[in-house]
C-alpha cells in the first residue's frame, strides 16, 4: 500500500469531520473521493499532507506512520504532491519560478537542471510559451496545469488533487482532466476529491463515497456510481443527477 488510513478522526471544535475513516490506496491506483460538501474529502487530503493534524488514528505512507509526532512533516510532504482547488500559485513569481522553487530550495537541485526539467514539463502540457508569465496573466485552466506541474517536478510518491476543476469555467475543465488522465497512464498514484462524476467514472480505479466522515461505500466506479448498495449513496447521486452533473 502506498497510502493507508486507519480509523482517522479529525474534529474542529465540536464538529467531527472525519469519524474513524479508513482508506487504502495501492501502487498506481487512482481513487476518487466523492460525497457532499462537508463530508470530509478536503480535510482527509489535508490530513494526509500533514497540513492538518489528526485527532486519532494512523496514516501510513509506504508503511511508515507519518502521523507520529516524531516524524519530520517537511520530509513527508516532499514525497506527497497536493494540488488545490484555487491553484494557490505564488503570484509574485513567474510560472517557471513557481515550478522550480521546491526542486531548487528543498531538493537542492541545480538551478539550470531544475529549469530544464520545468520547461520540458511545460512543453508537454502545452504551456511552453508561458514560462516567463506571471500567474495572473494565465487562465484558470492554465494556472491549474502549472500547479499540477509544480507538484509533479518533485517526483511525489502520491498525488493528492483537491477538487482541482471546481473553480474552473466549464470550457476549461477538459484541459485539466486530460492532463490527469495522462498521469494515470504513466502510473501515478492519485487520490482525487471531485464533483465530476463523469470524470471519476473514466479515470478512477475505485470510487469511495464519503458520508459523515467515513467511507460509506467503495468499489469500482461502475458499481458505486451505477448500482450503489447504500441508500445514502443513491440519494447523493440522485441529487447530482438532478443538478445535471452526471
Amino acid at each position: 500500500m502506498v497510502l493507508s488510513c486507519t480509523d482517522v478522526r479529525k474534529t474542529f471544535g465540536s464538529n467531527v469531520v472525519l469519524d474513524g475513516l479508513s482508506l487504502d490506496v495501492g501502487e498506481h491506483e487512482v481513487v476518487a473521493l466523492i460525497g457532499a460538501s462537508g463530508s470530509g474529502k478536503s480535510t482527509l487530503l489535508r490530513c494526509v499532507n500533514l497540513l492538518a493534524e489528526i485527532d486519532d488514528g494512523v496514516i501510513r505512507l509506504d508503511g511508515e506512520d507519518i502521523t507520529d509526532p516524531r516524524v519530520d512533516p517537511d520530509a513527508v510532504r516532499q514525497k506527497i504532491g497536493l494540488v488545490f482547488q484555487s491553484y494557490n500559485l505564488f503570484p509574485h513569481m513567474t510560472v517557471l519560478d513557481n515550478i522550480t522553487l521546491a526542486p531548487v530550495r528543498v531538493h537542492r537541485r541545480a538551478a539550470q537542471d531544475a529549469r530544464d526539467q520545468a520547461r520540458e514539463w511545460l512543453d508537454r502540457v502545452g504551456l511552453a510559451d508561458k514560462a516567463g508569465s506571471y500567474p495572473d496573466k494565465l487562465s484558470g485552466g492554465q494556472q491549474q496545469r502549472v500547479a499540477i506541474v509544480r507538484a509533479l517536478v518533485n517526483n511525489p510518491r502520491l498525488l493528492l488533487l483537491d477538487e482541482v476543476t471546481s473553480a474552473l469555467d466549464p470550457e476549461l475543465v477538459g484541459e485539466v482532466l486530460t492532463m490527469i488522465r495522462d498521469l494515470k497512464g504513466e502510473g501515478m498514484t492519485m487520490v482525487l476529491a471531485t464533483h465530476e462524476m463523469g470524470f471519476a467514472r473514466q479515470v478512477a480505479d475505485r470510487v469511495a463515497f464519503l458520508d459523515k466522515g467515513r467511507v460509506l461505500e467503495q468499489g469500482p466506479p461502475e458499481q458505486v456510481l451505477g448500482d450503489p448498495v447504500e441508500a445514502r449513496t443513491r440519494q447523493f447521486l440522485a441529487r447530482i443527477i438532478e443538478a445535471g452533473r452526471l
Binding site: 489535508r46 499532507n49 497540513l51 512533516p73 517537511d74 520530509a75 510532504r77 516532499q78 506527497i80 504532491g81 497536493l82 488545490f84 494557490n88 500559485l89 505564488f90 522553487l101 521546491a102 530550495r105 528543498v106 531538493h107 509544480r150 507538484a151 518533485n154
Partner: peptide, 9 residues
C-alpha cells in the same frame, strides 16, 4: 499551505 505542501520549511 501551498509552500508547505511542496516540502518547504
Amino acid at each position: 499551505a501551498a509552500a508547505r505542501s511542496l516540502g518547504l520549511s
